[in-house]
Amino acid sequence: MDIQSLKVACSSCNLRELCLPMGLSAPEMVRLEDVVSNRRRVKRGAALFTIGEPFTALYAVRSGFFKTCVTSIDGRDQVTGFQMMGEIIGMDGIVHDQHACDAVALEDAEVCVLPFDKIEQLSREFSALQHHVHKIMSREIVRDQSVMLLLGTMRAEERLAAFLLNLVQRLHARGFSQSELVLRMTREEIGSYLGMKLETVSRTFSRFMDDDIIEVKQRYVLIKDTQGLEALANPHAAAGNAKAERNISAS
């Protein structure tokens, strides 16, 4: 890893609205920029941090993609999440002062280092920053609950549809297309995250293509029928909407 001691200008970063709180005054922003004093570059396949490593900082992803994973009892890697630019990773280490997962770069990446002790100190002084940290923690809890819902109640088609929709929505919030994406993770990694075998992931992608919902060329995915994908991800809502439309037509 190459650590650069470069000044990170948070106020001019195009990801500011995604990873920093709104409403900080100019003096508060200057103090925050003093804390975020360096960036770290992580090569594809390298770990930003590993299980058991002492927890010292949070990391704002500036570019690239990461996966977080743990090792199962039988020695397999279990993917627990995918993180992209503008998102904060490393909160798993807060509870026991050491990281509970590995964070591995899926492509060459760069992160801003946020020393946690200094962030905590500033949070006590700036209510906007404290609220933002709490908001990030809450988002992680909600995301974990969503994954449990995926694994516990959804069929394969529903899981993959929900995954693709979530991914493209997060990318769109960063200025990318609403219908196109490049998968930075392998199908095996997608399967690990969604609790699906590799063969099931490939078969489900093929089914979506046969139904003309998506187009796939290697890792490039074009969503051709967003409503169709949404109906697959949430069939109960789609059925309810169809029933409501029928009732309106009948009246």
Rank of each mutant, 00 (worst) to 15 (best):
A244Y: 12
E215A: 05
Q145Y: 08
M148N: 03
L20W: 15
D225E: 04
H132N: 06
A244W: 03
A237K: 15
R246P: 02
S192W: 01
P54F: 05
R155Q: 02
E87S: 01
M137D: 00
C19Y: 15
F208D: 04
K135V: 00
A250R: 05
R203L: 10
L167F: 07
D34I: 10
T153I: 14
I119P: 01
D144Q: 09
L232M: 14
E157Y: 03
E230R: 13
M154G: 04
I73C: 02
D92Y: 14
T226I: 12
Q121E: 05
A9N: 11
G152A: 05
S249G: 07
L58K: 02
M196W: 03
H132Y: 09
M84W: 04
I73T: 08
H172S: 10
G23W: 02
L58R: 02
A156V: 02
T56M: 08
I213Y: 06
R170K: 07
C101H: 12
L15Q: 13
R139Q: 12
S11W: 03
R246L: 09
T71C: 11
N241F: 13
L48I: 10
D102C: 04
T56F: 10
V201N: 03
Y193D: 06
V221N: 05
D212N: 14
T80Q: 11
S5N: 08
I214V: 14
D108T: 09
E110P: 06
S123A: 06
G81P: 05
L32I: 10
Q145N: 12
T56W: 07
V104Q: 08
K67C: 03
V104W: 05
V35I: 15
H99D: 10
T71E: 14
L183A: 07
R203T: 10
I190L: 11
A238K: 09
P54C: 10
E188A: 07
R40K: 11
S12L: 15
S138Q: 13
C10D: 07
N241P: 00
S127Y: 06
A237E: 15
K224Q: 11
S12A: 13
L151Q: 04
E110A: 08
R170C: 01
S202C: 09
D108P: 00
T226A: 09
A242C: 05
L194F: 09
G45R: 04
K43M: 10
V35L: 12
A233V: 08
A156W: 13
S249T: 15
R40V: 14
V35C: 08
F55E: 01
V30G: 07
M196G: 11
R174W: 01
A128G: 00
P21L: 03
V42D: 01
M148G: 00
D211K: 08
G191W: 10
V216W: 00
L32C: 08
F82L: 15
I51G: 01
Q227M: 08
F163L: 09
Y220N: 13
L194Q: 02
H132P: 03
N38G: 01
V142E: 09
